[in-house]
Amino acid sequence: MGDEPFQAAWREIFQTGIEDNLKFTDAEIYQLFFKHTPTDHITRVNRVFINFHGGDFVASP
């Protein structure tokens, strides 16, 4: 997904999580990365989650 979108997602995950004292689920983590993924990279990002996570929450492109 590239450095900048990745870092934006990363920072949102940690800042939101710590400020609001949240404990995210796997699906929520995926959604936060998905939210920052450039449109033309969605398919590839989904493939990474499918290959390396195996979660059944990955959205259809």
């Binding site: 997904m1 590239g2 990745f6 990279h41 990474v48 989650f49 290959n51 390396f52």
Partner: peptide
């Protein structure tokens, strides 16, 4: 260690 670096780089 696998998922996050892969996610950033998209090398998969």
């Amino acid at each position: 260690p696998v998922l996050l670096p892969q996610l950033r780089r998209e090398n998969h």
